[in-house]
């Protein structure tokens, strides 16, 4: 993640001077631009370039892979390999186990999100990108909360399902569906309503970096999803039988 962020930043000075690169992007139909991060993105600015090449998709894939792996290993994988049985046969309450998993996930995601954003902040002066600190800070919070929301859904799946594959399947499915519905919502008004229910609608890295206000609605949405699914995970694990 760090290496990739640094390499992408290193490419910016060269690509930003290539008018052909900009023209190439401008030739894309609006619908296609929306598929990669939005038609309003100015690719010649560092924020636009980073949105398309780093924040919109690649970073999310990296963090989602970690999130799904982590949450699956906390419950469903531990159940499959027998370590959950060993732990819960001890005087440990299940709700505490679930909440501890959730707090560990939040801490790990905070660290990874910080690392991702700090990489860009460190690369910015080196490659003369002039990235705003405030914008990166906003993005850091939104990125963290988005992954927390995905992690909470995945933690719930980990508590409810019987195999690691099902947890990965649901997590990946939600992420892809969310991305595609967001794309459809950006292009066709018929999908706008349903898009509001999904994670990607509230994730707008370009706006976070370039606009002055704080995306409170996104933060609130992700926080609500996180609390709701963590609560569900606690309830489901509390009620189910632990079998290998």
């Amino acid at each position: 993640m760090v290496v990739f962020g640094f390499l992408i930043s290193a490419l910016y000075p060269s690509l930003s001077k290539m008018t052909a690169f900009s023209q190439y992007w401008e030739q894309f139909p609006k619908n296609l631009k929306n598929l990669f991060g939005g038609s309003n993105v100015n690719i010649l600015t560092p924020e636009g370039f980073l949105t398309l090449e780093y924040y919109q998709m690649i970073l999310i894939i990296i963090l989602a892979a970690f999130t799904l792996g982590f949450t699956a290993s906390c419950i469903v994988k531990a159940r499959e390999n027998g370590t959950l049985e060993l732990i819960l046969a001890h005087p440990i309450e299940r709700w505490k186990y679930t909440l501890t998993s959730s707090v560990s996930l939040a801490t790990a995601l905070a660290g990874l999100s910080l690392l991702a954003v700090a990489t860009i902040m460190a690369a910015s002066p080196v490659f003369d990108m002039g990235i705003s600190f405030a914008g990166q800070l906003k993005l850091l919070v939104i990125l963290w909360f988005m992954m927390l929301a995905l992690g909470s859904i995945s933690l719930f799946a980990s508590a409810a399902f019987n195999s690691t594959g099902q947890v990965y399947g649901l997590g990946i499915g939600i992420l892809i569906a969310s991305y595609l519905i967001n794309y459809l919502g950006n292009n066709w008004s018929a999908f706008k309503f349903i898009d509001r229910a999904f994670l990607y609608h509230y994730y707008a890295p370009y706006s976070a970096m370039t606009e002055s206000g704080f995306p409170w609605a996104s933060l609130l949405y992700y926080a609500l999803v996180s609390v709701a699914f963590t609560t569900l995970a606690v309830i489901v694990l509390q009620r189910r039988d632990i079998s290998v």
Binding site: E85, H90, E93, V244
Partner: peptide, 20 residues
């Protein structure tokens, strides 16, 4: 019982003990 503190006085060996 939701209170599981009594299990600190119980040792359990599963059929196939799992380890890290």
């Amino acid at each position: 019982n939701a209170d599981r503190s009594h299990l600190s006085a119980v040792g359990y060996l599963p059929e196939s003990p799992a380890f890290y």
